[in-house]
Design a protein around this nucleic acid. Structure first.
Length: 464
RNA sequence: GUCCCCAUCGUCUAGAGGCCUAGGACACCUCCCUUUCACGGAGGCGACCGGGGUUCGAAUCCCCGUGGGGACGCCA
């Protein structure tokens, strides 16, 4: 059978890190098995779904390169199908109308909770042979409930968690159509997974409890039950659950925050899944290796430090062309315009291996294109009165040399020797004058890139 | 409360009964490199939740406990 997986987000917010991982795994599973990956937007909650959220999800997937073979399908556009199936179930007696009001159910729930019972529907309107149903109340539009089996167990071999069994006596008759006739989540999922021929449902852990109900409905429809793989959740850096109010951020935020998609993808792939000792691998490799057997069933804590490490790796790996395009944008956001000279690629080549973040990298090299301002503390510490004459002597030499890193190095060395100093004694003030801070790559290389004219202008601005 | 799930270094994980004196990676510490800060290199610190079984032998299997999480909507 051809593998068909799907990612089925509800458009009530952006694509967060957990959703992205679910999508990534579903995508990779399809790729690995030469199957098809389907995107389905579950927008049946009209109250909370928004077009902006749909776009945000699409943007997130696009950025990560999680391309889908089919879709996006929108459940709201499939109403006719759902209604037809519901009618069929009603006709077959697999579902029935329920006239219990919300208030009535609320009261029921509370009393059950108080008695230490699991809150559930009491089956008041469930038709049973020999049972007399109450008189249908006026002015109440009924919901439709699925007639769940009351005995036996539902079981499935979860591809991540192993065998899971739940007694039907634990389940109640869930609502599959609201009073206004619109179908609910659990029902739409079942119809869609069935009709779209989904073979492996890879989704979040929070759906484990929906699975037995879905299997029962699938059985009632005479459908093949797909395989299920439930991924456990991703906790925040602090070990706490991620939620809208705590730590959950859009994957696009990582882009904003200076992360390369390669790093995010690699990081996410390793969060909950492993392939021996492999830590660094690209998506092609991942798709070849990916399997459901090596997914951990336990929750994973997000670790920004490790993401940073991967980001540093991919910054070193990325092409200078791609990097310079990206950094140009980031500099523009900082109101720094990249000039033709010094060559941005040359600058990046010098700086990339010390960076683990694109925003940081942009900030670090901004001084090449915009005059930096050194802190008073650095100026005081490094540009001392006694070093000023030495720097002046250096300037004299710099005026006449060929402008290469080697020649500059030689010039500095000469001054250092003549004055019986240590190299840093001269290098540090130069750093502060030229870059505005006390850390930089080799100062001769920085000077070579900055250019003779600009270098001398900056140095002279500090000399009395 | 009821049901379901989970449990190896601080973190992500390897581990399918002997290969485990428990391996790798991030972080941390030390040293080396060095022109400052990084990069890089070499070392180091550091874990099988507890208790019972099963077995010649258990991190691995079973049971109980403890701890964590999830679900119990006319949300998805």
């Amino acid at each position: 059978m051809n593998v068909r997986t799907r990612f089925a987000p509800s458009p009530t917010g952006f694509l967060h890190i957990g959703g992205a991982r679910t999508a990534l795994f579903s995508w990779a599973y399809a790729k690995k098995n030469a199957g098809r990956f389907i995107l389905r937007i579950e927008d049946t909650d009209v109250e909370r779904s928004t077009p902006e959220a749909v776009q945000a999800i699409l943007d997130g997937m696009h950025w990560l390169g999680l391309d889908y073979d089919e879709g996006p399908f929108y459940q709201m556009q499939r109403m006719d199908t759902y209604k037809k199936v519901i009618q069929g179930m009603l006709d077959k007696g697999a579902a029935y109308y329920c006239y219990s009001s919300k208030d009535e159910l609320e009261v029921l729930r509370e009393s059950q909770m108080q008695q230490g019972l699991k809150p559930r529907y009491d089956g008041k309107w469930r038709p049973e042979s020999g049972k007399n149903l109450p008189a249908i109340p006026a002015n109440i539009s009924p919901v439709v409930r699925f007639k769940n089996p009351q005995t036996g167990v539902v079981a499935w071999d979860d591809l991540v968690k192993g065998r899971i069994e739940i007694a039907n006596s634990e389940l109640d008759d869930l609502i599959i159509a609201r009073a206004d006739g619109t179908p609910t989540y659990n029902f739409c999922v079942v119809v869609d997974d069935f009709e779209m021929g989904i073979t492996q449902v890879i989704r979040g852990d929070d759906h484990v409890n929906n699975t037995p109900r879905q299997i029962n409905m699938l059985n009632a429809l005479g459908a093949t039950v797909p395989q299920y793989a439930h991924l456990s959740m991703i906790l925040g850096d602090d070990g706490q659950k991620l939620s809208k109010r705590h730590g959950a951020v859009s994957v696009m935020q990582y882009h904003e925050d200076g992360y390369l998609k390669e790093a995010v993808l690699n990081y996410l792939a390793r969060l909950g899944w492993s392939h021996g000792d492999a830590e660094i691998f690209n998506m092609q490799q991942f798709c070849e290796w990916f399997d459901l057997d090596h997914i951990t069933p336990s929750a994973a804590q997000f670790n920004t430090e490790k993401l940073n490490w991967l980001n540093a790796h991919y910054i070193k790996e990325s092409s200078l062309d791609a990097l310079s395009a990206d950094i140009t944008n980031r500099l523009a956001k900082m109101s720094v315009k990249v000039a033709a000279s010094p060559d941005l690629k040359a600058v990046l080549n010098l700086y990339r291996e010390r960076a683990n973040n694109l925003n940081q990298l942009a900030a670090d090299i901004a001084y090449f294109y915009a005059l930096p301002e050194a802190s008073a503390a650095d100026v005081e510490k490094h540009i001392t009165a006694e070093i000023q004459p030495v720097i002046k002597a250096l300037v004299e030499k710099l005026l006449t040399i060929e402008w290469t890193a080697e020649a500059i190095h030689h010039a500095i060395n000469t001054v250092v020797t003549e004055n019986q100093l240590k190299f840093p004694k001269v290098a540090m003030p130069l750093r502060v004058m030229l870059t505005g801070i006390a850390q930089s790559p080799s100062i001769d290389q920085v000077m070579a890139l900055l250019g003779q004219k600009e270098t001398l202008v900056r140095i002279n601005s500090y000399l009395a």
